[in-house]
Each structure stands twice: as structure tokens, then as C-alpha cells.
């Protein structure tokens, strides 16, 4: 007879909800546009003497075109990044996925990795190194926007310039921020290729996970 349906299982959410997947891929394209167009702009006045980026990897055939790409890509990067930060804070995703980081766990993960015990069986759990790397790249992304604003508007937003020790200081921090992000990208893409399920998870959503334990207690 009509019996009450069994209680819903706790696993109702996918690992990567739709907004995360959309924002991830918008960010991926925007980041690549910003990095490769930035290489086109860099070449006119290099920061490390002798370091040039090959035309093959530059977006834009010369500086004016690269600048046009950079100043178009920035809107996608900033608006999408802002949406991601707001989403991550207010849904509790950042706290759930990226915190806490315990020093002991960090050391153990590094040891395991050096012994080639790379555990990536459980996609729903980030190890301490992963957590730290994601936090570093988020901070680097924010730093790129702030240094970018200092370089773009050193008069209208002149208060930003002294934070980096002057106009050239802002350029140098902007350059090293790119290096950090490119470094992250190399590791991130390499690991994703080694464990292709992670790529599929970022497209289709991945395994179902339990409800956030403290989701309704999150305070901004």
C-alpha cells in the first residue's frame, strides 16, 4: 500500500554544483587570455632582462592587439572571480573544501607525494597540499587584480601604488603573480590529466556528496 517514501539519503548535492562548473570554465578561458595577452604586453619593456615570450604563445600580433585582449579579458576575469568569491564565502564552500589546513597533514602529504604515494581516490576530499595550493592561487588572482588596477590607473587609484613600492613595483608584483598562477596551472593540469575523473567531475558535476554539516549555520 501507499507507504511513506524512505527518508531521502543525505547525498543530494553533486561535488561541483552548476555555478562552480560554469565559473571554473569561464575563469579557465579568461585566465589563459590574460596570461597570453600579458606576455604580448610584457615584451615591450621586459622585467627580467633576456626573458621574452615566444610569439607562438602570445595573444595579439603586437602590443596594441595584446592590450585590447587584456582589457577585454579583465572584465570576464574580475566579474567572474567576484561571483566565485561571493559564492564560495556565502555557501560555505570555501570553509568546507579549503579549511582547516593542519601542519602535520601538510608535512605528511608532502612526504607521501615524494614517495609517489599520490592518493586521489576520493575526489570529494582535498589533501592539505591541495587546500594550500587553491588558497595560494585564489590570493594570487586577487593580487593580480589589485596590481593590475595600480598599473592601469596609477593616478585615479593612486592610493594603490605605494602598496607595491611604486609603479614599477606594481609591475613586478603583477609579473610574479603571473608566474605563481602559471606554476599552479602546470601542476593543476598535470594532475587533472593523471586523474581524468577530476576533469569529468568539473564537466558533469562529479559524485554526490552529503549535505554540508554547517551549511545553515554559515554566517558571512
Amino acid at each position: 500500500m501507499a507507504s511513506t517514501p524512505p527518508p531521502k539519503p543525505a547525498a543530494t548535492r553533486k561535488l561541483h554544483p552548476v555555478p562552480i562548473r560554469v565559473m571554473h570554465w569561464i575563469n579557465a578561458v579568461a585566465m589563459l587570455v590574460m596570461i597570453t595577452s600579458g606576455w604580448g604586453i610584457y615584451d615591450d619593456y621586459v622585467i627580467i632582462s633576456g626573458l621574452h615570450f615566444s610569439h607562438t604563445f602570445r595573444l595579439g600580433s603586437w602590443a596594441a592587439e595584446s592590450l585590447m585582449w587584456h582589457f577585454a579579458g579583465m572584465w570576464f576575469l574580475v566579474l567572474n572571480g567576484l561571483a566565485y568569491l561571493i559564492y564560495g564565502v556565502f555557501t560555505g564552500r570555501f570553509r568546507e573544501r579549503l579549511l582547516p589546513i593542519r601542519i602535520g597533514e601538510l608535512v605528511q602529504t608532502v612526504k607521501d607525494t615524494l614517495h609517489f604515494h599520490i592518493a586521489h581516490e576520493d575526489l570529494t576530499h582535498y589533501n592539505a597540499v591541495q587546500k594550500l595550493l587553491y588558497i595560494v592561487v585564489i590570493v594570487a588572482g586577487i593580487s593580480q587584480v589589485v596590481t593590475g588596477l595600480a598599473i592601469w590607473k596609477p593616478v585615479q587609484l593612486s592610493f594603490l601604488v605605494p602598496l607595491f613600492g611604486g609603479f614599477q613595483g606594481a609591475r613586478i608584483v603583477h609579473f610574479w603573480g603571473m608566474v605563481v598562477i602559471v606554476g599552479f596551472l602546470v601542476v593543476h593540469v598535470a594532475l587533472a590529466v593523471l586523474v581524468p575523473r577530476t576533469i569529468w567531475a568539473m564537466l558533469a558535476g562529479g559524485p554526490r556528496v552529503g549535505d554540508r554539516p554547517r551549511a545553515n549555520k554559515v554566517t558571512p
Binding site: 604586453i41 619593456y45 592590450l67 609603479f167 614599477q168 609591475r171
Partner: peptide
């Protein structure tokens, strides 16, 4: 005042 070139030098 500071002169800033589009190339990046000043």
C-alpha cells in the same frame, strides 16, 4: 610628474 609609457617604462 611621472611620465608613464604604454610600453611599461616611466
Amino acid at each position: 610628474i611621472r611620465h608613464i609609457c604604454i610600453e611599461g617604462w616611466d
